[in-house]
Amino acid sequence: MLKITNLKAEIEGKEILTGINLEIKAGEVHAIMGPNGSGKSTLASVLAGRDIYNVTGGEIEFKGKNLLDLSPEERSREGIFLAFQYPVEIPGVSITNFMRAAVDEHRKHKGLKPMSAGEFLKFMKEKKALVELEAKLEGRAVNQGFSGGEKKKNEVFQMAMLEPTLSVLDETDSGLDIDALKIVANGVNKLKSKDTASIVITHYQRLLDFIVPDFVHVLYNGKIVKSGGKELALELEEKGYEEIKKEADKK
């Protein structure tokens, strides 16, 4: 589904990603961990197409297409979803209108007709229930006045609405209490299928108790320096990154 080959990226002349190689197949969950500043969020941003990052080398192939040729909106329509670490507040833009516009574009891309207002509201209600989003959304602006937990739940709700094939969760666990974390993780798990895949970026093992990864990768200095199964996360929780850092620095 996704194949990243020797990906390099910089911001304002500073190289952040120094050669990432990663392959993700349908049905898999990959966790990306690593110390602060290792490039985790940069990788998420580059996958989504944020233009402040300059890709200086390498390739990203997504479902046979060159992802780097696509605009952020085209990537979304192709099936990539980024759950933001810091969801953006957009004053005045109602969630309903926002989701309506997004769903319409996705359907257009698939050659489907727009939903009727009634169908859309029903669809929204179903997805809200699926991700256990209790907050009333009608008449509210995107993320405005939302608590940290609500913002993250709203990300998962949007993910449910857009039914992506590859979702990238950028520190979705940050700022969540344990109950909210469970709800968010549950939502993500319900959306999982044999045809979809996820990249879960996190600092902590805790999230991975709820969203169980097939692979764990450690990112350090813009490279994946170690990969393993879910037990690698437990090991990191216990020992920290020091050993891995030392080993990588030696090379």
């Binding site: 944020r50 952020p72 909106e73 979304s76 329509r77 004053p91 005045g92 833009v93």
Partner: peptide, 21 residues
């Protein structure tokens, strides 16, 4: 950027924001 990552074109994203404004 946030709006665009949801599949909304830049033009429509601008429209949504200016309309709200």
């Amino acid at each position: 950027f946030y709006l665009r990552t949801r599949g909304i074109s830049e033009r429509i994203a601008k429209t949504l924001m200016l309309y709200a404004f």
